[in-house]
């Protein structure tokens, strides 16, 4: 338990080992730790950015999808409208055609009727003339009675 030269021996050893630690141990270890910290920070940042990118992409995809769906719905709506319109148009056309055919038929019938009436009238007037001739037993001048006959024909 004597104080002796060991004291100074220990002091010299202390300064040597502190110097050793200061020069050859501490700086490389701390530098490596700092380097790794930076690397980890960078990695985390990259991951963060990637996550943000993914979120953005997902959002964009969702938007695209929504837009496409809306477009599709619009197209379907348009198609439905168009088809309804077409059906309506067809109906209208058909109705118009039917009307036209009916009118044509009516006109035909009327014409036929008129023609028949014309024929009938001519025949009736001739018959009337023959009848009158027969009644009067003499020839009747058709020119003298033409006016009377025409009136008769118009009355028919």
């Amino acid at each position: 338990m004597n104080i002796n030269l060991t004291l100074f021996g220990q002091m010299i050893a202390f300064f040597f080992f502190v110097w050793f630690c200061m020069r050859l141990v501490w700086p490389p270890i701390v530098a490596a730790m700092v380097a790794r910290q930076e690397q980890i920070a960078e990695g985390l940042e990259t991951a963060d950015r990637a996550k943000k990118d993914l979120d953005l992409a997902q959002k964009r995809a969702m938007d695209e999808l929504k837009k496409a769906r809306a477009e599709a719905a619009e197209i379907i709506e348009q198609a439905r409208k168009r088809s309804a319109q077409m059906v309506e148009e067809a109906q209208r056309d058909a109705r118009a055609e039917g009307e036209r055919l009916k009118q044509a038929a009516t006109a035909d019938v009327e014409q036929e009727l008129r023609r028949a009436r014309e024929t009938l009238r001519a025949e009736v007037s001739a018959l009337a003339v023959v009848g009158a001739e027969r009644i009067l037993e003499r020839s009747v001048d058709p020119q003298a009675h033409a006016e009377m006959l025409d009136r008769l024909v118009a009355d028919l």
């Binding site: 080992f17 050793f20 050859l24 141990v25 270890i29 530098a31 490596a32 380097a35 790794r36 690397q39």
Partner: peptide, 19 residues
């Protein structure tokens, strides 16, 4: 110190390695 120095040498060679 020998242990520390060994670690310091590997750390200096490859700072970013997984420890």
């Amino acid at each position: 110190m020998w242990f520390f120095r060994r670690v310091a040498v590997t750390a200096a060679q490859d700072p970013a390695a997984i420890p």
